[in-house]
Design a protein around this nucleic acid. Sequence first.
DNA 1: AACGGTATACCGACTAGTCGGTATGTAGTA
DNA 2: TACTACATACCGACTAGTCGGTATACCGTT
Lengths: 198, 198
Amino acid sequence: MARAGARTGRSPMAERIIASAVELFAEQGFDATTVQQVVDRAQVTKGALYHYFDAKDDLLYAIYQSLIGTQNAALDEIAALGLGAADTVRAVLVNVVRTTVERLPEAKVFFREAHKLDAERHAAFRADRRRYHEGFRLIVESGQASGEFSRVVPADTVVQIAMGVVNQLPVWYRPDGAKSPEELGNEIADFVLAALRP
Amino acid sequence: MARAGARTGRSPMAERIIASAVELFAEQGFDATTVQQVVDRAQVTKGALYHYFDAKDDLLYAIYQSLIGTQNAALDEIAALGLGAADTVRAVLVNVVRTTVERLPEAKVFFREAHKLDAERHAAFRADRRRYHEGFRLIVESGQASGEFSRVVPADTVVQIAMGVVNQLPVWYRPDGAKSPEELGNEIADFVLAALRP
DNA sequence: AACGGTATACCGACTAGTCGGTATGTAGTA
DNA sequence: TACTACATACCGACTAGTCGGTATACCGTT
């Protein structure tokens, strides 16, 4: 298990190590990246890395935690605003697109290497993802229950579709492209809300 | 370059090797799978593998080729039917969901390990993907031009959303789940067409 | 039919190199 | 002295790919 790496408040040294790990994992993949490359880029030594982390896998888990934690917290905040279903859906989509784009390398590592976590951590990963999914589903479902949304497809499918685009963003989104994250998030929201109009 | 592996008509031995490679890459990932594991599962020897393939990478490319080739051909066939835009979109979505689910391990390997192809092959991969994307986009756009579809979002975004779900299927779809591929494909089509109704 | 020549298909022991992780040392601080 | 925070040298395990060799199929010639 990670020592300092598992805590929320990380030392600057640990942060530097994680930052270079994120870059390298995103560029080359987890397995193809050597521990030596990580420490070289961070300009530290192997001793330092193994002082803060117990294994290479810990780096992966640390990366995952920071992203999903942020997104789940944001979902809770938006849900707590008490907006109508449509405004909530839009706010959620714009937010998740923005946070994903802001942290594109983390997101890339995520959806590509999550299955390499050991059983326990992979379960934690899926639980957190499921939590997000479920939170989003409840928003859609409440809109359908109130009649604000149509029932053209089950709420579950709506979420799979919406999360599908978002999860694919690391594959095709280019920060130097024409669309800002907000524009893209709003377009996705336009589309989803158009499908859900009664 | 692959010798027999690059041709369309593959020997039974080469097929067996590819089949076990697909399974193992889907389970463990490309880097984490050893050549020895592949030959053990296929019940052949290393000599046999390196007789048919020049490198481990060739296995990845062979896997990729067979799936994308099938899907691009199917897209062309459907487009050639001359159906209306809505029926074409539905046919495409049902088809792509079905072929993806039918070959879930290949699809899983695909979206996870594509970036590990060398530059030349990765370019070929992207060109084929782009071809599919573009074919789909033209269908949507022609529907928008004729007024059959709304312009709620650009055709490009519609395709990104639709392909997003499909590409994520290997992550969450369970063949033993409640929904058949056809049901799911139709649901996705329902959603997309609902969003595009004028 | 018998034979020599040659290409293809396959075998599996071997190696050179790599990688995650560890053992040990040391400098600063309390 | 005891402890933290690193640095450095090193180890054992493992892997992609190779290479010398064998078995079998095919083919023109006599």
